[in-house]
C-alpha cells in the first residue's frame, strides 16, 4: 500500500510515517500533487490552530486535492486537526474559520475544567465500526482543546450512514468518523501504541 502523509508545515510527521510503515505501508511525506493523487491512501495530519492548518492546506492546494480524491472514491484519513478541518468551520478565540466542509458541524472549544484534553482516553465506536475492528476497551492518545460536540449530518436512505465514534471529556465529542472513503480520528493513532497500530492496519485494509 502506497500512502502519502501530506506535508504542509512543520510538526512531527515522522511518527505518522513510521507508524504507517510499521503497519505495512510504503510511505512518502510530501505535498506533491501527483503523488497526493496517485497514493492508495492520503493521510492529512494536523497540529496547532485550525486557522493555521487551513492556510497551510490551502498553500499546497490540498482542499482541491482532497476533494478530487474523495470524488474518485480514493481513501483519505484525517488525524487530529486534520480531522477538524473536514468540518464546516472552526471557532477559535471567537474567530470563525471556514473548513473543508466535507461534514456539517463546527469545531468548538471543549467544555472541561482542564484543557488541552491531553492523554489517553477510551472510545465508544458503533458496533459495525471497521476502524475499531479487533479493538476492545483500548485507550488512545489525544491532545486537543477543540472538537465537534454535535454530529449533524442527517441520515438518508440513499446513502449509508457515517459511523461516528464518541469520547467523553467534560462532554461527549466526536473522536472518530468512518464515512465511505473519508475516515478521521481526533486522537493520534500514530502515538497510541498497539491499539493505534491496529487502527492504522484497519485503515490500510480498506485501501484495496
Amino acid at each position: 500500500m502506497a500512502v502519502v502523509v501530506l506535508d504542509y508545515g512543520s510538526g512531527n510527521l515522522r511518527s505518522a510515517q513510521r507508524a504507517l510503515e510499521r503497519a505495512g505501508a510504503t510511505v512518502e511525506v510530501t505535498a506533491d500533487p501527483e503523488a497526493v493523487m496517485a497514493a492508495d491512501g492520503l493521510v492529512v495530519p494536523g497540529v496547532g490552530a485550525f486557522a493555521a492548518c487551513m492556510s497551510g492546506l490551502t498553500a499546497v492546494n490540498a482542499p482541491n486535492l482532497i476533494g478530487r480524491r474523495l470524488a474518485g472514491g480514493l481513501p483519505v484519513l484525517g488525524i487530529c486537526v486534520g480531522m477538524q478541518v473536514l468540518f464546516d468551520a472552526g471557532v477559535e478565540h471567537g474567530v470563525e474559520t471556514p473548513g473543508l466542509g466535507e461534514w456539517p458541524g463546527t469545531v468548538e472549544r471543549l467544555q472541561a475544567e482542564v484543557l488541552p484534553h491531553m492523554g489517553w482516553n477510551t472510545v465508544t465506536p458503533p458496533e459495525d465500526s471497521l476502524m475499531f475492528e479487533g479493538v476492545r476497551d483500548e485507550y488512545f492518545y489525544f491532545v486537543h482543546s477543540y472538537g465537534v460536540l454535535d454530529w449533524t449530518l442527517p441520515v438518508s436512505e440513499r446513502m449509508s450512514a457515517p459511523r461516528v465514534t464518541w469520547t467523553d471529556y467534560g462532554t461527549p465529542f466526536v473522536s472518530a468518523v468512518e464515512n465511505g472513503p473519508l475516515w478521521a480520528t481526533q486522537f493520534h493513532p500514530e502515538k497510541s501504541g498497539d491499539a493505534g497500530a491496529r487502527v492504522l492496519r484497519n485503515w490500510l485494509a480498506t485501501l484495496g
Partner: peptide
C-alpha cells in the same frame, strides 16, 4: 463549577 467531571473520568492519569 464541577463541569461534568464524572464524565471526564475516563481520561487516564498518565504515569
Amino acid at each position: 463549577m464541577d463541569l461534568g467531571s464524572a464524565a471526564a473520568v475516563s481520561l487516564a492519569v498518565r504515569v
